[in-house]
């Protein structure tokens, strides 16, 4: 172990330090802070000193907080809706654009990928104008096509759908590129031998592409699920979790106990309770990831 000289040890230490400080301060410390405050009732200066209340925050969360459970349900609906639509769509796009030496294919890819480079917040603002009930461009187009009443895109019944659509808009290109990378890793010989057997394109996809894509697909799905659970920026800008919490998700719900979602919102800051909510939220994501990993392993074993 002692093959480094003192000066070398110093160098190693010095080179690690900048990142290590950032890591401890910006990743580890906040989590520990949260862990401490889950046992307290504390809301900032106005609440006085933090009051130790044991597990009362969890009692409240699990027995007396319908909003959290609504947010939990919404989070699953959002994730299922977004992932369920964006994965097939992006897979389809990747299949279509997985061609070499076709003119313009690069341009098509780059265009579909473009939303990925846009700010979710700024585009949330643009979508807010587009989906506006009264003056929005989308309703105007629909009404000119013969729709009688404007669609209440941001109302309590449709807001979740709108938010999912925007989530898909922002994610499609991303997953398409992942799929493309996966597709390009499939040996071409497999297709060639299949062609000799006179296999049609659907069969090709089903018997060759999908099985060969298995590991990549698994990774993409997991990425998509985890990201969908934590998407809050566009929801925050577009609907602020409303109306009547129709688009409130768990991470946004935790956020509002610390910071106001919008200037008008008056939620009393509750750091202890908010810490409990965010901890449970991160456990939910962790649990979903683990369940997903176990399930996908089981599937492997079946085959």
């Amino acid at each position: 172990m002692n093959r480094y000289s003192k000066s070398e040890k110093a160098q190693i230490f010095a080179m690690l330090t900048p990142n290590l400080i950032l890591f401890i301060l910006l990743s580890v410390y906040p989590v520990l802070w949260c862990f401490r405050y889950i046992f307290f009732q504390y809301g900032g200066l106005a609440s006085g000193e933090p009051i130790f209340i044991g597990l009362d925050n969890f009692r409240r969360l699990f027995t007396n907080d319908p909003v959290f459970f609504k947010a939990l349900k919404n989070t699953f609906v959002y994730a299922a809706g977004k992932v369920g639509l964006v994965i097939p769509l992006s897979f389809f796009s990747a299949m279509m654009l997985n061609r070499k030496n076709v003119k313009g294919i690069g341009f098509l890819r780059a265009t579909l990928f473009m939303p990925t480079i846009m700010s979710a917040a700024v585009m949330g603002l643009v979508f807010y104008l587009l989906f506006n009930v009264y003056n929005g461009e989308i309703n105007k187009i629909l009404m000119s096509l013969g729709m009688k009443l404007p669609v209440n895109w941001l109302g309590k019944d449709k807001a979740m759908l709108t938010v999912i659509l925007i989530g898909i808009w922002g994610g499609l290109g991303n997953y398409m590129i992942y799929f493309l990378a996966g597709l390009q890793g499939i040996p071409q010989e497999l297709y060639e031998s299949a062609d000799l057997d006179g296999v049609n394109s659907l069969q090709r996809t089903w018997y060759i592409t999908l099985p060969m894509l298995g590991p990549v697909l698994k990774m993409i799905l997991m990425l998509a699920i985890v990201i969908a659970f934590q998407d809050i920026t566009s929801i925050m800008v577009l609907t602020e979790g409303g109306p009547v919490n129709a688009t409130m998700t768990i991470f946004l719900y935790a956020y509002q106990f610390f910071f106001p979602i919008s200037p008008g919102s008056i939620v009393t800051t509750q750091f202890g309770y908010g810490a409990a909510v965010s901890l449970v939220s991160s456990l939910v994501v962790g649990a979903v990831t683990v369940i997903y990993l176990i399930l996908s392993k089981k599937l492997d074993n079946l085959e």
């Binding site: 106005a46 006085g48 409240r60 907080d65 309590k156 009547v244 009393t268």
Partner: peptide, 24 residues
């Protein structure tokens, strides 16, 4: 007088009443 002295569990009065107004 002090919002920290009335920490309501669940939705506050305005959001609750608004949900009622929308028929929920």
């Amino acid at each position: 007088i002090n919002s920290q002295a009335v920490l309501v569990e669940g939705e506050n009065m305005y959001n609750t009443i608004f949900a009622l107004i929308l028929g929920e």
